[in-house]
């Protein structure tokens, strides 16, 4: 009974957190970014109207700084919540994330899709996306490898995802028993919330494989 209410509580916390993250991401993208664009347009107008070369150059520098800020805000918004998930779907959002992942950590991820992508609810897409993100970040942090693979397998009523690396691996029981390693527990919890499953296999010196599965209705 107590275990059930604890799972319900953590489910509620994860959902509430995701909603808040999405709200902040939208606010950054559709609120703050748009205001900054307006200021940028104003600066461009000022730049063309000014005659004093010192002021002109100062305004140009301000515009360049503002452009950098706009770019930062846009990237921060995407980092918080991948809006392409609802517009372009899970695979496209993941490909976009992988580009950013490689340019951040230098680890190349080979992505492969078998079968045709099927419709998943936004919350289920997000659960899978976050679980993949966690698995990939663990590769960057601990696997000590330069390459890994991510495979989407779309079957009739189930999506399977395999994330595999040939890095240094770990002793699974030790890690699962360590209360400080909450990332794996969070992955399992997210997948369970979506009605799916997350299995991990690893051996020291022989890499790690994360297998996600999510049943869906066509």
């Amino acid at each position: 009974m107590e275990l059930k209410s604890s799972i319900q509580a953590s489910t509620y916390i994860i959902q509430a957190q995701e909603e808040e993250i999405k709200r902040i991401s939208n606010e950054l993208h559709e609120g703050i970014s748009q205001h900054l664009y307006s200021v940028n347009t104003g600066l461009e107008f000022l730049h063309s109207a000014l005659e004093n070369p010192d002021l002109k150059s100062y305004v140009k520098e301000l515009a360049a700084q503002l452009n950098r800020t706009i770019q930062e805000v846009r990237l921060l918004s995407v980092e918080l919540y991948p809006s392409s998930l609802s517009t372009l779907g899970l695979v496209a959002a993941m490909k976009s994330y992988l580009k950013q992942f490689t340019s951040t950590f230098g680890v190349i991820i080979h992505i492969d899709t078998i079968g045709h992508e099927q419709f998943l609810s936004e919350s289920n897409q997000l659960a899978v996306f976050r679980a993949c993100q966690e698995a990939l970040i663990n590769i960057a942090k601990y696997a000590d490898t330069s390459e890994a693979s991510l495979r989407f397998i779309w079957k009739d009523n189930i999506l399977k995802i395999e994330i595999e690396d040939d890095g240094k691996g770990f002793h699974l029981k030790e890690i699962l028993g360590n209360t400080r390693c909450k990332g794996i527990a969070a992955m399992k919890q997210r997948m369970a919330m979506a009605g799916g499953d997350c299995q991990i296999s690893s051996e020291e010196g022989k890499g790690t494989k994360v297998s996600l599965s999510l049943p869906f209705q066509r």
Binding site: E72, T102, G106, S146
Partner: peptide, 13 residues
């Protein structure tokens, strides 16, 4: 010890 540095690009700041 590896070639990861070749792919790493960090943003200003």
């Amino acid at each position: 010890t590896n070639e990861k540095y070749k792919h790493v690009t960090v943003r200003y700041g």
